[in-house]
Simulated scan of single mutants.
Amino acid sequence: MTSQSNSETSGRGLPRRVGQLFAGLVLYGVSMAFMVESRLGLTSWDVFHQGVSKATGLSFGWVVILTGVPILLLWIPLRQKPGFGTIANLVVIGLVVDAALAVLAPGDSLAMRVTYLVVGILLNGVATGMYIGARFGPGPRDGLMTGIVHRFPRLSVRLVRTTIEVAVLATGFLLGGTVGLGTIAYALAIGPLVQLFLPVFAVTPRGRRVRLAPSLGTS
């Protein structure tokens, strides 16, 4: 493929990539709201967000946004550079989750709560595939993990990821965040779901096959 055809393909794909990025971020915020209202357990980072929300009185969405700022500042010594998707991720998800929580009816019965949990996890898988597939850069939390690995290459991704997840989960639990069946279900399901949906939404130049290795979890 010539450089000219690459440029033309990139130009035609940009509107789709931007639209897919924002659609993915909106769906991600909605998926978080479903999991919160299920009251059956949250992702590690969302346990932390909920715990901080309970401790400070701030809304869940504003905690997502405000905690993302110092995390993003940690990128500086790690020599990470945020992309357009990083900044969009920082703002959009928090605003959407607050809006979704305002209109989503609480799960009253156990059947409804389980339904919320399943819908939340499925939507999260679709949303993750969409925003990662748009190729505009990782979210603040995923970028922290990859930045540490790049800065300290002797550390494995698995070690860094596990350490961060355990630390935020434990902190969030101590602050009153919800840990339960949903926390385990998400951990088991999100990998296969993203593996399923990422190829569907991966935006690549025409004529090329690009393998994307996502960093799973909250953006």
Rank of each mutant, 00 (worst) to 15 (best):
64 V>G: 07
18 V>F: 11
126 V>R: 06
1 M>L: 12
166 V>K: 02
22 F>M: 11
112 M>P: 02
193 L>A: 07
43 T>R: 08
208 R>C: 05
208 R>D: 15
65 I>P: 08
53 S>L: 04
96 V>W: 00
56 T>S: 14
62 W>D: 12
157 V>H: 13
162 T>E: 11
68 G>E: 06
15 P>L: 02
176 G>P: 00
176 G>T: 00
20 Q>R: 06
139 G>D: 02
74 L>M: 14
189 A>H: 05
110 L>S: 11
154 R>V: 14
97 V>C: 00
139 G>F: 03
24 G>I: 05
88 A>G: 15
39 R>V: 13
60 F>C: 06
178 T>P: 05
51 G>M: 09
161 R>M: 08
144 L>S: 02
35 M>Q: 12
122 L>Y: 00
175 L>F: 06
119 V>A: 05
98 D>A: 03
34 F>D: 04
38 S>G: 02
20 Q>P: 05
101 L>F: 03
53 S>C: 04
141 R>S: 03
53 S>V: 03
139 G>V: 02
182 G>M: 01
71 I>R: 04
26 V>H: 08
24 G>M: 08
219 S>G: 13
115 T>Y: 01
88 A>Y: 06
143 G>S: 06
217 G>M: 07
27 L>R: 02
78 L>H: 04
170 A>R: 05
211 R>E: 15
181 L>T: 07
163 T>M: 03
164 I>A: 04
135 R>S: 15
160 V>A: 00
79 R>H: 13
169 L>I: 09
213 A>G: 11
